[in-house]
Amino acid sequence: MSELTSTGVEATRRRLTEKQADTVDRLTASAVDVLSREGYSGTTIRLVAAAAGVGTATAYTYFSSKEHLISEVFWRRLIATPEPETDDSDPATRVVAVLRQISMLVADEPALASAVSNALLGDDPDVQHLRVRIGREIRHRLAVALGEQDRARLSMLELLYSGALLQGGMGLLSYEEVADVLEVCARRILTDPGS
């Protein structure tokens, strides 16, 4: 297992020294800047590396593809965001808080939001690794909020979340609309005794 980097985020490909962690931090920050200027299709590892002030070959030692880099940006944002704190006794309210928080994670950055949807669908092994980690983290947060061992409802919530975010990533819904749809559907799932 990798060490924690300077930002408190595990490296996905290798153990990092402080200097290497700084390079990865610069690459992930630059990826967001390049995406906002160039869009997903125009973003390349070469452009991100140049913006970060590192060589392209160096960037490739940390990220196997732009999809891997973009997925890493989302992973870092997700784990840097603390779980919503709510003392509400209603599981639906707690679940909605989790779903809304995650769905709004990149809502203010449309280029990044769209890129994340594209990147996470990639078949790069490093992306697959991050997709599993992201899925586990979201599942954990939903399970804690749900507060019960109801695997069927938990699975429904996971499918609801992934489908709604895909709709947002494709531009069919705004991320605020995604959050609203998630709330309505989650409340229905959690209050319907037949679910």
Score class of each variant (00 low, 15 high):
residue 115 A to D: 10
residue 140 H to R: 15
residue 35 L to F: 01
residue 162 S to Q: 11
residue 175 Y to K: 10
residue 169 G to M: 07
residue 6 S to F: 00
residue 173 L to E: 13
residue 72 E to K: 14
residue 186 A to F: 03
residue 1 M to P: 13
residue 51 A to S: 09
residue 148 E to M: 09
residue 159 L to Y: 06
residue 67 E to W: 01
residue 147 G to I: 02
residue 189 I to N: 06
residue 83 E to W: 05
residue 93 T to Y: 00
residue 75 W to Q: 12
residue 99 L to S: 08
residue 45 I to P: 09
residue 99 L to T: 06
residue 28 T to V: 14
residue 67 E to F: 03
residue 43 T to Y: 00
residue 35 L to D: 10
residue 9 V to Q: 10
residue 105 L to H: 10
residue 63 F to L: 04
residue 73 V to A: 06
residue 126 D to S: 15
residue 58 T to C: 05
residue 184 V to H: 07
residue 12 T to S: 14
residue 125 P to L: 01
residue 23 T to R: 14
residue 68 H to E: 12
residue 140 H to K: 14
residue 168 G to K: 08
residue 176 E to Y: 00
residue 57 A to N: 11
residue 140 H to P: 06
residue 128 Q to P: 06
residue 137 E to V: 04
residue 137 E to A: 08
residue 83 E to D: 15
residue 139 R to G: 00
residue 187 R to P: 02
residue 42 G to H: 04
residue 88 D to K: 12
residue 57 A to K: 05
residue 134 I to S: 10
residue 64 S to D: 10
residue 25 D to F: 05
residue 120 L to M: 14
residue 38 E to N: 12
residue 93 T to N: 01
residue 25 D to W: 06
residue 37 R to W: 00
residue 51 A to W: 00
residue 124 D to T: 03
residue 145 A to M: 10
residue 177 E to H: 15
residue 160 L to V: 09
